[in-house]
Computed example of a mutant assay.
Amino acid sequence: MSESELFMVHKGVFLTTLVHPAESLKYYEDFTFRPDDILIVTYPKSGTTWMQEIVPLVVSEGDLTPVLTVPNWDRVPWLEEHRAILLSLEQRASPRIFATHFHHQMMNPSYFKIKPRVLYVMRNPKDVFISSYHFHEMASFLVSPGTQDEFMEKFLDGTIMFGSWFDHVKSWLNAGEQEHILYLCYEDMISDLKASVEKIATFLGKSLSSEVVEKIADHCVFKNMKQNKMSNYSLVPEEFMDQKKSEFLRKGIVGDWKNHFSTAQEQKFNAVYQEKMKDVKFSFPWD
């Protein structure tokens, strides 16, 4: 399919038509949040699947049942995707856990009125780029990425699914309701997952024993989570995701971009990053 057939523009951002049909976007726009809802917000390929594993385990206080028996897209559904309509989310018991890749300004009126709890995860955009490149190669509902240079142009311009990484991160860092948001970095989670689990638990009002924190962290180490068929996307038909081309859960490491970037690509990326992020005060672990 052509780019014009695969993509649409919603609130100024590219979305995929197959995953985000008009009726799904209308459902999200009309969706009513609750104050105790938990919303995982990420730019794609920034640790979403990881958080869909960790957060239910924090809420269940270490009971593995939900993450071993329910696919992650139903366990923690994306509100903007087509499956949300099918899941009777209005009937789910609190606390409900959702995910979204929307920019802050794309959130619906109920979000701004209710201000549910948000876990916002950021990742080094160079690693996001490499992960996104491989994802575009294996996902049939996305445009072929072309060469790495061609895809870098689109990534830096924001003319890919969910738009600009820079705009996404800045929109959430500048959110007015920051007392309801916990900011997390993928790199910090890699370096000390137990500390991140404890931070998430505290934010969600959960008092977990050290044994439960250890259990959650051990289950959610990348190599262990990768074996969970409810989370590794092995249940998705090959015509949608061809994991022979690239695994969905590929490496889960920090700094893989160094194995892929040429010197020229690194210089180009750095120049755009420095210009677009020059006014951002947040201290990122990759800076």
Rank of each mutant, 00 (worst) to 15 (best):
E5Y: 14
S231I: 02
R117H: 07
V197Q: 04
K115F: 08
F151G: 00
P237T: 04
A93C: 08
H136R: 14
Q178R: 14
K45H: 07
P237R: 07
E275D: 13
K199Q: 08
V19R: 14
R250H: 09
K115R: 15
W73V: 14
V55P: 01
G176N: 11
E275V: 07
V13G: 01
T48K: 11
N259T: 07
G255W: 05
R250N: 10
N232D: 10
W286R: 00
D256G: 04
F284V: 11
W165H: 06
E29H: 10
A195N: 13
Q148P: 07
T159A: 08
V76F: 14
Y133D: 01
L64K: 13
T263A: 14
H260P: 01
L193K: 08
W172M: 04
P95L: 10
F31D: 00
E5D: 15
F151P: 02
S209A: 10
Q274N: 15
M152Q: 04
P125L: 08
G146K: 03
K268P: 10
S209W: 11
D188G: 06
T100I: 08
K113L: 11
I38G: 02
F135V: 00
V76S: 11
T49W: 03
A201R: 00
H10R: 12
S196L: 06
L64M: 14
K206P: 11
M51Q: 12
I253S: 11
I216H: 00
I38L: 05
M107K: 02
M277K: 03
S191Q: 15
L64Q: 12
V272K: 04
G146C: 03
Y120T: 03
E81Q: 12
W257C: 08
Y120H: 09
E137L: 12
E179K: 15
E238S: 12
H10M: 06
C220W: 03
D279V: 14
E53M: 03
N224I: 12
M152L: 13
E153M: 00
T147M: 12
V121M: 15
H134K: 15
L68D: 10
I253M: 11
S283M: 13
T69A: 08
K113R: 11
F222H: 05
L119A: 05
L79W: 00
E53L: 02
F248E: 09
Y28C: 08
V169Q: 02
T100C: 09
N124I: 05
I130G: 01
Y133Q: 01
K194C: 10
S231E: 04
T147R: 13
R123D: 03
M138Y: 06
D37E: 07
E198N: 01
K223E: 13
I97L: 03
Q52K: 12
W165L: 10
K154L: 06
A195D: 14
L208H: 05
D63W: 09
T69Q: 09
D63F: 09
S60I: 02
T32E: 15
F203R: 00
F7N: 05
Q227Y: 11
E179C: 12
S144D: 15
V67R: 04
E239T: 12
W172I: 02
P125D: 07
R250E: 04
D192R: 10
M230G: 01
H168R: 05
I54C: 06
E137H: 05
K194N: 12
I54L: 13
F102Y: 09
Q105W: 12
